[in-house]
Amino acid sequence: MVISNTASRPPTAGATRPERTTLDALEAEGIHILREVAAEFRRPVMLYSIGKDSSVMLRLAQKAFAPGRIPFPFLHVDTGFKFPEMTAFRDRRCREVGVDLIVHRNERAIAEGTNPWDQGTVLCCARLKTRALVDALREGGYDAAFGGARREEERSRAKERVYSFRDAEGQWDPRNQRPELWNLYNGCIRPGESIRVFPLSNWTELDVWLYIRREAIPVVPLYFAEERPVVERHGQLIPVYPGTRLRDGETPKRVLCRCRTLGCHPCTGVIRSSARTVDEIIEELLQVKESERTTRVIDHDQDASMEQKKREGYF
């Protein structure tokens, strides 16, 4: 439960209730959730997507289990279309921190050449992300998986619980969620069932960056502005990588830009930006007029896209 400190009451004798910020309260809530899951579940795993939210979760996990090691492995679902910078960062970070990293790919779909250009984003996502994720969780026998989703991101996520119950197929039923009272989470499941857990539920994008600044958390360099080759498509700036399929008449141009969210490079737009530091990103966020998920092509492939993907087992 996030509780903000009240400065209006005089402290009781012997009690010291120091001034604490909302970020401190969010941090405490996240740590509480991580510990609760580590204690109550047999095989938790952290979904590590390499982005800023995962980086914050990693730091929370370090703090939650200090001075010991993080007591669960990290799982990255690799589609083969992740930015190369992300993979390099992932391997370096996990080595530095000393976490067990599991990388899972839907090898069969990758071998069959699944890609967003030929099959479309809906099918590509279903195979390389959702299917791969559900398979990885089942193969690992994981009964709880942490994700970095925040309620402010998308309107169907506003309805998520902190403990989000999934049936044996990993599916979400928004009409049949367990009520979540105080900070008493109901973690009772049967073999095969699992929960997805969102320790950053109540954080905003700005909280994430303020925490990255306060804690000096390393993030993938793609978040910082640089001149990068891009093509413009449906109002999105799509970065050009080796393997990016260009359409007729498209010529890459160099634009000063950065990623606001990280995903697969064919489906993640960049934004025009000159923010080269965390401070500058924070300044930029105060002015920004679009939500962060606008740069995710997959959120817009159908109405209620995110809801549909979540029902099927996506985070």
């Binding site: 996030v2 903000s4 400190n5 009240t6 909302t22 700005l206 303020l210 105060l286």
Partner: peptide, 11 residues
């Protein structure tokens, strides 16, 4: 930015 960081949370 400082104002946002200082702002208390009311649920």
């Amino acid at each position: 930015v400082a104002a946002f960081e200082r702002a208390p949370l009311l649920r």
